[in-house]
């Protein structure tokens, strides 16, 4: 790893509002430390823009440690940039070379309309979860935590699925803008746990219906979502969703 500072050309999507058509704009950013995170690099750019009285670039971010799922960005055509199992906030500038041109676009999907610049509206995900991604248990109704034993291996499968951070990279990377990886992660988590079994039929039918209503595409099994997922959710969960769906479609009352 070199300590040499980078001079970069940034090609960034600027869009004033949801109705604006938007366009790319180029910015020169010099003297970027390779130890900076990608978002810190954008912070520095914004300071530079403010100093020259240009409006800073709006981008979503919050925890900056890879768990909140708020950061996004299509970096050189890849969701969350070139690294696997990494969110944009965890990506560091040492991954780039001096003189690079970096293109930065928002997530693009009909279900994720652009709010401004690189910020998109992902509330479709909330509505999908609201359509069945839960266990209907009111506060105070719970039996003892150990009342139902759950084998460690089952719990591990559930946890693998539950690790989803809801960032939307799966949708952004999918050529069909499909949300199947996101939806299947929740369906799968609940389908393997005994607590989630009771509502499995209504859950999968409800969530798939809402997913369609939001305008996400269908799954062509390209596995691009899996490669883009910072939480490394496997397409195995999509298969489980499909099983759950087929079962529910044939047996729902």
């Amino acid at each position: 790893m070199s300590d040499e500072h980078l001079n970069l050309t940034l090609r960034i999507w600027r869009q004033d509002g949801p109705e604006d058509r938007g366009a790319f704009r180029n910015y020169q950013l010099d003297n970027v430390s390779p130890h900076m995170s990608f978002l810190e690099m954008l912070d520095v750019l914004n300071e530079q823009l403010i100093a020259s009285s240009e409006e800073p670039v709006e981008f979503d971010h919050d925890c900056r440690e890879g768990i909140c799922g708020m950061c996004s960005l299509m970096i050189n055509g890849q969701a969350h940039g070139p690294d696997r199992a990494t969110t944009t906030c965890q990506l560091h500038m040492r991954r780039f070379n001096n003189g690079d041109t970096i293109s930065i676009e928002p997530w693009r999907a009909t279900a994720f309309p652009v709010v401004r610049d690189l910020v998109v509206d992902r509330s479709a995900f909330d509505r999908v979860i609201g359509s069945g991604g839960y266990v209907s248990v009111n506060t105070g109704n719970a039996p003892d935590g150990n009342a139902i034993p759950i084998p460690g291996t089952t719990q591990e499968v559930a946890m693998d699925a539950a690790a989803c951070i809801g960032c939307g990279a799966c949708v952004a990377a999918c050529k069909n803008a499909s949300a199947m990886l996101f939806v299947s992660a929740k369906v799968s988590q609940m389908a393997v746990l005994p607590q989630g079994r009771t509502e499995r039929t209504e859950r999968v039918l409800g969530m798939v219906a809402q997913m369609d209503k939001e305008g996400f595409g269908s799954c062509t099994n390209t596995s691009e979502c899996e490669a883009a997922c910072p939480a490394e959710i496997s397409v195995e969960h999509i298969a489980r969703l499909n099983r759950e769906y087929a079962r529910a479609a044939l047996t729902a009352r």
Partner: peptide, 21 residues
């Protein structure tokens, strides 16, 4: 049918798109 729906799901395209696989 699915192809058309998928087109609807992304009305504006990326200018650059690379696989991570």
């Amino acid at each position: 049918s699915t192809h058309a729906m998928n087109r609807q799901a992304r009305r504006s395209q990326y200018t650059q798109k690379e696989s991570k696989q």
